[in-house]
Amino acid sequence: MKYAYFPGCSLKGTGRSYEESLLPVMRILGIELEELRDWNCCGATAYMSVDETKACVLASRNLAIAEKTGHRALVTPCSACYLVLNKTQHYLKEVPAISNGVGKALGAVGLSCHGAMPVRHPLDILLNEVGLDAIKQKVTHPLTGVKIAPYYGCQIVRPYATFDNAYQPTTLDRLCEALGATVAHYPLKTRCCGGSLTGTMPEPGLHCAYQLLKEAVKRGADLLATVCPLCQFNLDGYHDQIAAKWEPVRLPTLYFTQLMGLAFGLAPTQLGLQRHLVPMKPLLPVTA
């Protein structure tokens, strides 16, 4: 199976271990991700705060390029990209003022966007196209005895929950179980990580991250599994500040793709685990 692939800026920057683990894991499962030629920034939440139409213009250039590839879907691993690309598709269909502006902008450079390219998250592809059985077959180093708090964050389940339930998502839970891990009951699984507030208004932002980590500790989790580069950064990068302000809640946060890679027998350095600020070595028997 082959898909168009939109990595997003974070996967080339602070979140590069997400891409480093996503690509080999998908390859093992027979999925080829073809990176979109000369893709641009999706606009994220910041562009929407300044100008909605221009935010959609930025996102729709990617959709237009993706449509030209003829692939069945555009796969994007970052939650913000996933939301913005989906939101743009909705606006193009439902809001004439925006779709007119986008049409004009794309038309100026000979591009067009029909809104026909499904935008999907790798988790969706794994659960609904590959299937848990096929994933289980590739597991050579089951994560037995590792207790995982499955953390979905906000933007892959809200507001356009296309492949999972917005209130009680289970795809990541089931994936972790398929890898042999124990899944912790984690009621904060869709609560916000603090987003970009950790950089702009640190106290409220870090408070969000602190609550998530504290809850995971309370539930006896060894680590958190995440699907988003910003969530990973917020839960991994600010432990000093959180400990100084509240209490130490030092748990590692791994991308679900890294957990899959470990279970498939890949080495930690092949999955970018050395890039994380909270080391996970002592926790995972498979990485020892």
Binding site: C9, G13, C41, A44, A46, Y47, D51, S196, T200
Partner: peptide, 18 residues
């Protein structure tokens, strides 16, 4: 941040977070 973000996205086409 929102303004700097939009300026960078428009000028470079991508965001370099750092």
């Amino acid at each position: 941040l929102a303004r700097e973000f939009t300026d960078m996205a428009r000028a470079n086409g991508r965001i370099t977070e750092s």
